[in-house]
Lab assay of single mutants.
Amino acid sequence: TTLTVNTQTYTFTSEEEAREFARRYGAKTIRKTNGTWEVHG
């Protein structure tokens, strides 16, 4: 199964959650914005 996250942004309140998600789905960018963490595919 392949998950494609081209134009979607996922927002997390903790860096740990964001990094775990990025690691699991191979997202390329993690960015902190206004106190939340954004993961970009």
Rank of each mutant, 00 (worst) to 15 (best):
residue 31 R to M: 10
residue 21 F to E: 00
residue 12 F to M: 00
residue 5 V to N: 12
residue 23 R to Y: 05
residue 12 F to D: 00
residue 24 R to D: 03
residue 16 E to P: 04
residue 40 H to P: 05
residue 18 A to I: 00
residue 14 S to P: 00
residue 29 T to G: 05
residue 26 G to N: 07
residue 18 A to D: 00
residue 28 K to P: 07
residue 23 R to P: 00
residue 25 Y to V: 14
residue 39 V to N: 01
residue 37 W to A: 01
residue 5 V to G: 13
residue 8 Q to N: 10
residue 40 H to I: 15
residue 5 V to M: 10
residue 7 T to D: 09
residue 9 T to L: 10
residue 10 Y to N: 03
residue 23 R to H: 06
residue 14 S to D: 07
residue 10 Y to M: 07
residue 2 T to N: 13
residue 6 N to H: 11
residue 13 T to R: 07
residue 20 E to S: 06
residue 1 T to L: 12
residue 33 T to D: 13
residue 8 Q to L: 12
residue 41 G to A: 13
residue 8 Q to T: 12
residue 5 V to C: 15
residue 37 W to Q: 00
residue 31 R to I: 13
residue 15 E to R: 04
residue 31 R to G: 03
residue 16 E to S: 09
residue 35 G to L: 04
residue 6 N to M: 13
residue 7 T to H: 13
residue 2 T to S: 14
residue 28 K to S: 12
residue 10 Y to A: 04
residue 6 N to K: 07
residue 11 T to Y: 13
residue 16 E to V: 08
residue 28 K to C: 15
residue 7 T to N: 10
residue 34 N to W: 01
residue 28 K to L: 12
residue 19 R to D: 06
residue 3 L to K: 09
residue 27 A to L: 15
residue 29 T to V: 15
residue 29 T to N: 06
residue 36 T to W: 07
residue 38 E to D: 02
residue 20 E to R: 08
residue 16 E to F: 08
residue 25 Y to K: 05
residue 27 A to H: 13
residue 25 Y to H: 11
residue 2 T to C: 15
residue 35 G to H: 04
residue 15 E to G: 02
residue 1 T to R: 05
residue 24 R to H: 06
residue 22 A to H: 02
residue 14 S to M: 03
residue 34 N to K: 04
residue 8 Q to S: 10
residue 19 R to H: 06
residue 7 T to M: 11
residue 22 A to R: 01
residue 14 S to Y: 03
residue 21 F to Q: 01
residue 1 T to D: 13
residue 29 T to Q: 06
residue 1 T to C: 15
residue 33 T to P: 11
residue 23 R to E: 09
residue 8 Q to G: 10
residue 31 R to A: 07
residue 6 N to Q: 11
residue 9 T to K: 09
residue 21 F to P: 00
residue 38 E to S: 03
residue 13 T to P: 06
residue 17 E to R: 04
residue 27 A to W: 15
residue 2 T to H: 14
residue 15 E to W: 12
residue 24 R to Y: 05
residue 19 R to C: 15
residue 17 E to G: 02
residue 1 T to W: 06
residue 38 E to K: 03
residue 31 R to K: 11
residue 15 E to M: 05
residue 40 H to W: 12
residue 27 A to S: 07
residue 15 E to N: 01
residue 12 F to W: 01
residue 4 T to G: 13
residue 25 Y to Q: 05
residue 37 W to R: 00
residue 36 T to V: 14
residue 31 R to E: 08
residue 9 T to Y: 14
residue 1 T to Q: 12
residue 17 E to M: 06
residue 8 Q to K: 11
residue 28 K to R: 08
residue 21 F to W: 07
residue 2 T to K: 11
residue 5 V to R: 05
residue 13 T to F: 11
residue 27 A to T: 06
residue 3 L to I: 13
residue 24 R to M: 10
residue 16 E to M: 08
residue 38 E to R: 02
residue 31 R to N: 06
residue 37 W to S: 00
residue 10 Y to W: 14
residue 24 R to S: 05
residue 4 T to E: 12
residue 20 E to Y: 04
residue 29 T to C: 15
residue 15 E to L: 11
residue 13 T to Y: 12
residue 7 T to V: 11
residue 11 T to A: 05
residue 7 T to E: 08
residue 24 R to E: 05
residue 27 A to Y: 15
residue 38 E to W: 04
residue 38 E to T: 07
residue 39 V to P: 00
residue 30 I to M: 05
residue 14 S to N: 11
residue 6 N to I: 13
residue 34 N to D: 13
residue 13 T to D: 11
residue 20 E to H: 04
residue 40 H to L: 15
residue 4 T to P: 14
residue 4 T to R: 08
residue 12 F to L: 00
residue 16 E to A: 12
residue 12 F to K: 00
residue 6 N to G: 10
residue 36 T to F: 12
residue 6 N to E: 12
residue 25 Y to F: 11
residue 18 A to H: 00
residue 16 E to W: 11
residue 30 I to A: 02
residue 16 E to K: 11
residue 13 T to H: 10
residue 41 G to D: 07
residue 2 T to R: 10
residue 3 L to E: 13
residue 10 Y to Q: 04
residue 32 K to P: 03
residue 20 E to L: 06
residue 1 T to A: 12
residue 2 T to I: 11
residue 30 I to L: 05
residue 7 T to Q: 10
residue 12 F to P: 00
residue 31 R to P: 05
residue 33 T to K: 12
residue 37 W to V: 01
residue 11 T to C: 15
residue 24 R to L: 10
residue 41 G to P: 12
residue 27 A to N: 05
residue 34 N to C: 14
residue 22 A to M: 07
residue 28 K to A: 11
residue 25 Y to E: 03
